[in-house]
C-alpha cells in the first residue's frame, strides 16, 4: 500500500517535532562559549574560560563529586532492592502480588512535590535533613520502582521451567536465584541500575526540600545558577551534562542491542 499524502506529510511533521525535542538543548553550547562574564550569545568571539572556571571551581567540582556519590549509592541500593523485589513478586504471582506491585510503584507515580513533602516531614524529626544518608534513602525509594519495572520486564521473558529444572536437579533456593535467574535477567538489572542512577543524578524537587548547605548536589547548584541567571558557568555545566547523557545513551544502546542479540540467538 502506497503511503498517502497525509501520511508523508505527517512523517515530515514528526521529524520536525523530534528536532524540536532535541535541538533546543544545544543552545547551551554557544552560550557556554561566550567570552563575556554574563549569560549571552557569543558574537564572533569564543572562549573556553567558563569551562576552565567550571573545572577549577571547588564548588562545582564538589557538587559533581557529591552527585556521583549519591547517584552511585542510590543506583546500587535500588538495584539490589528492586531486583529482589521483582524476583519475589514473580515467584509469588498471585492476585496479592499484583496489588503489592501497584503499591510499590507509587513512589514513581505520586507527584514529586508530594514525595518531597513526605520526606521533608519525616526527615526533620529523624535528623536526616541535609545529609548524604537522607538524600540516598529518599532517592532509593524513588528509584527502586524503576528497577522493579525493568527487571520484571526481563522476568516476563524468563521460562519458569528453567527454575523448576534447577530445583529438580537439587539446587537450593539461593543457588537457583544466583546461578539461574540472575544471569538471565541481567539486561533488565543493568538497565534498571542505569535508570536509577540517572533519576538520582538529575533529581531536583526532593533535593530542594531535603538538602541545604552541607550536601549540595549538581542539580541543586544548577538550579541556583538558573535562578540567578547571570553566570555562564551554568551553560558550561549544561554542556557537560548533555555530553554525559549522550555517553549514557550509547552505553544503554549497546546493552540493549546485546540483549536483543541474545534473544534472537535463543
Amino acid at each position: 500500500m502506497k503511503p498517502s499524502l497525509l501520511a508523508s506529510f505527517n512523517r515530515a511533521g514528526a521529524w520536525v517535532l523530534l528536532m524540536f525535542l532535541v535541538l533546543p538543548a544545544l543552545i547551551a553550547i554557544p552560550v557556554s562559549l561566550t567570552p563575556k562574564r554574563f549569560l549571552s550569545m557569543p558574537k564572533g568571539e569564543y572562549s573556553l574560560r567558563h569551562f576552565e572556571k567550571l573545572f577549577t571551581s571547588e564548588e562545582w567540582m564538589s557538587s559533581f563529586g557529591q552527585s556521583a556519590i549519591i547517584a552511585l549509592s542510590t543506583s546500587l541500593l535500588a538495584t539490589i532492592l528492586g531486583t529482589l523485589c521483582a524476583i519475589g513478586l514473580w515467584r509469588v504471582s498471585s492476585k496479592y502480588s499484583e496489588v503489592v506491585r501497584a503499591f510499590l510503584l507509587l513512589p514513581l507515580i505520586i507527584p514529586q512535590i508530594i514525595s518531597a513533602m513526605a520526606f521533608y516531614r519525616l526527615w526533620i524529626p529523624m535528623g536526616l535533613l541535609d545529609s548524604y544518608l537522607g538524600l540516598i534513602l529518599a532517592h532509593t525509594i524513588l528509584a527502586t520502582p524503576m528497577v522493579l519495572i525493568t527487571v520484571s520486564a526481563s522476568l516476563a521473558n524468563f521460562d519458569p521451567k528453567l527454575e523448576q529444572a534447577s530445583r529438580n536437579l537439587g539446587a537450593s533456593n539461593w543457588v537457583t536465584v544466583r546461578r539461574v535467574i540472575l544471569p538471565s535477567v541481567r539486561p533488565g538489572v543493568l538497565a534498571g541500575a542505569l535508570f536509577a542512577f540517572i533519576l538520582s543524578w538529575d533529581e531536583i524537587v526532593v533535593t530542594l526540600f531535603i538538602s541545604k548547605y552541607s550536601v549540595y548536589t549538581l542539580p541543586r547548584r544548577m538550579w541556583n545558577g538558573i535562578r540567578e541567571n547571570t553566570d555562564p558557568t551554568v551553560a558550561a555545566a549544561a554542556v557537560v551534562l548533555i555530553a554525559l547523557t549522550i555517553i549514557a545513551f550509547v552505553v544503554y544502546a549497546i546493552l540493549s542491542r546485546r540483549n536483543a542479540k541474545v534473544k534472537t540467538s535463543l
Binding site: A28, D202, P219, M222, W223, A238, L241, T245, F249
Partner: peptide, 16 residues
C-alpha cells in the same frame, strides 16, 4: 535522548 536530557538543562535552554 530528549527523554534523558536533564530537566534543568532543558529549562535552562528555554530560558536562553
Amino acid at each position: 535522548v530528549s527523554f534523558w536530557i536533564s530537566i534543568l538543562v532543558r529549562t535552562f535552554s528555554w530560558l536562553m
